[in-house]
Nucleic acid binder design. Structure first.
Lengths: 132, 132
DNA sequence: TGAGTGTATGATAACACATAATACACTCGC
DNA sequence: GCGAGTGTATTATGTGTTATCATACACTCA
């Protein structure tokens, strides 16, 4: 759980997953939570790389992935910015939800659970967690 | 979608994922569905390797993983067998379900969905699919 | 004993990921 | 225009995972 702060952003990196994917995921979350406002500039490739003690190439990889998903816009010579389109962010959120739900349903079905049982699993899980 | 039949088992292998993981997953599913009975012998390492046109090492990797999960028992010189304990199979199913649900909830929460919204997503998805 | 099992090892290759170093192109304020 | 700060590209190197190929060993059973 190596935790590092860069500007207003906090990152937790580990070795369980590619670093560039962790950057994308945690940055996306920050955008969805509103920790970074629409149209705001995010740290430069070199700045974030230094802050995370990681190669600029790795940050670049993450930034290109975010742009591909429509979350950011890069302006050569100026920097990388969160998209100023609220619709794009919402589209991303819906698209991700769709993907996650599809994956989840496929896995649960292959384990032999019916729709009703799947929802029941979720309900009982919620109760378990409320116990604590 | 390279589909291959080995004895009573059907496998679909692709390059999107490690082969040994695909073998574990599809064999597990076959056990859960009851396509292979408890205590039954499964193809030998070499036999399955030949059937799937894959290296024996790869099949070995898959078989060792299944044994680690308590799904199979291997008897040196005799072969690999599905566990004859119904409880072990059920334990595996529950454990997998727990893991899948946990992962799913974490992802959906990180996308900013509440419990109610998550269940709503599942319901609306079911309706979408019934349309077809 | 021999055929069929699981198991182990070493060499090789391909690929993804990350690092390091360097260079180029663009933008903006001075 | 210059220089600092941007994104971007390239090359080389290293590491780990996955898979292949070949070979060998250990065990079981008819």
């Amino acid at each position: 759980m190596d935790e590092r702060q860069v500007g207003a952003l906090r990152f937790q990196l580990d070795l369980s997953q590619p670093i560039y994917e962790q950057i994308v995921e945690q940055m996306s979350r920050a955008i969805l939570r509103g920790d970074i406002g629409l149209g705001e500039k995010i740290p430069s490739v070199r700045e974030l790389a230094q802050g995370l003690r990681v190669t600029p190439n790795t940050v670049m990889h993450a930034y290109q992935e975010m742009e591909r998903q429509g979350l950011t816009e890069t302006r050569r010579g100026q920097g990388t910015f969160i998209t100023s389109s609220r619709q794009r962010v919402e589209a991303f959120r819906q698209q991700e939800a769709h993907r996650v739900v599809t994956e989840f349903l496929a896995k649960m079905r292959s384990l032999g659970f019916t729709e009703a049982e799947i929802i029941e699993q979720l309900r009982s899980r919620r109760q378990e967690e409320e116990m604590q």
